[in-house]
Each structure stands twice: as C-alpha cells, then as structure tokens.
Amino acid sequence: MKRSRILLLIVLLVVVPATLFLSTRLPGRSYYLMSAIVALEILIPFFAAYEKRRPQPRELVTVAVLSALAVIARVAIPLPNFKPTFAVIMLAGIAFGPETGFIVGAIGALGSDFFYGQGPFTPWQMMAYGVAGVLAGFAFARGRLPRKNWIMGLFCFLCTVIVVGPLLDTSTVFLTLSKITWSGALTLYLSGLWVNLTHGAACFVFLLLFGSVILEKLERVRNRYGMMESDENEDGV
C-alpha cells in the first residue's frame, strides 16, 4: 500500500473519530470548530502526498492554471449562481486523475476566498471542492464511465446537488443554527437546494456544450507534454 493511502486511512479511522469524540467533551459551540478541524484533517493526507511527489513545473503550473480557472468561472458568466466552477474542477479530475482533481478544487477554493473573503467556511469549501474533483476522477478513470458530454454533465449535476452542495450547506448548519435539530437542518438544506440546483444546472449546460472540447484540450496538454505520469492516473489513485 502506498504511504499516502496509509496516511489517509489513519486520518479517517483514527484522527477524525478522536476529534469528534473530543468535540463532545468541549463546552459551548465547539461543534462548529471541531467540524472545521475535521475538514482540515481530511485535507492533510492529500496535501502531504502532493508535497511528497515533488511535481514537475509543467504539472504545477497546469494545476495552478486550472485552479485559477475554477476561481474565475465564478466571474466569467454574469448571471447569479450560474457558475460552472465545479465543472472546471471535475474536468480537471477527469483529465488528470482524482489526486490532481482534489488539489485543483482545494486550492481553487482557498484562492477564491482570498478574493471574496476568508471565513469559517473556508476549510469546508476546500474539502467540498476537493471532493468534487476526486469523485469525478474516480468515476471516469480507466473508462469506468464513458467520457461523453451528457454523461459528464449529468454526473456533475448529480454530484453538485447530492454531494458537494449539501457538504457546503452542512457548514451553514453548524455555523448558524442555534440548536442542531433535524427540522432546523432540513430547512437549511432545502433553502440551499435552489442554489445547488442552479449550480448543478450551470455545470450540466457547460459540460453539455463544451465538455469534450475542454477535455480534449486538457488531454492534449497532458499527452503532448507528458504530464502527471499517465500510468499512475489511469490507475484511479
């Protein structure tokens, strides 16, 4: 087993439960704090693996470009909430593998918060955006799912509405509810649903129109300049 995967398992099986246990022992509204710490802990093994790999400049710059594109996908289209950010992150995951997808998402979230303001939601955002990249990377690795426009679009829509959006809403639940109750949480999830649906729809339309065009561009860069050790990524981590 690779060392990075052992670290990930240790974090998920030991560190995160320990933090959750500790949170039941602390006073006040520590659950928000602890949830943010858990989100940070999940980031650590991915970042550590990336540092360990010592990526080449070509890979590094490409990842930076993709993260920056994810940030500005928020700005390029002047319609509220109609932002294909997740589509860009997921395309990165599909083209370059889940690990790169995670880094693109996490760095994209952190970078965009330097422009739009950091908040207690930043660790959550980094994790949720990273997860978007990982999921897409896994699902489309080694031809598990055909890389067709409508399939990528549908996958991205479902991911956004079912996984990534609710993850972000969870941080709102922890942050704003005075008492965490099922009904209170449900109200927040439902009020977030509309935003998630528009985000998802934006991703769907974007991928339907441009999915394979952009994927081709990414794969061309990867193949032409021999980036990201393709045998490692075909593996699906």
């Binding site: 970042f47 540092e51 590094l60 990842v63 470009v65 940030v71 880094i103 994209g108 970078g111 422009f115």
Partner: peptide
C-alpha cells in the same frame, strides 16, 4: 508546504 504555497501564489497571480 512549499509546493502548495507556490501553487497558491501562482493562483493569486493568475486570477
């Protein structure tokens, strides 16, 4: 985290 912070720096410049 030299690699990650270099990435972040490049993103901040690229945007």
């Amino acid at each position: 985290i030299p690699t990650i912070s270099l990435l972040l720096l490049m993103v901040l410049r690229l945007v």
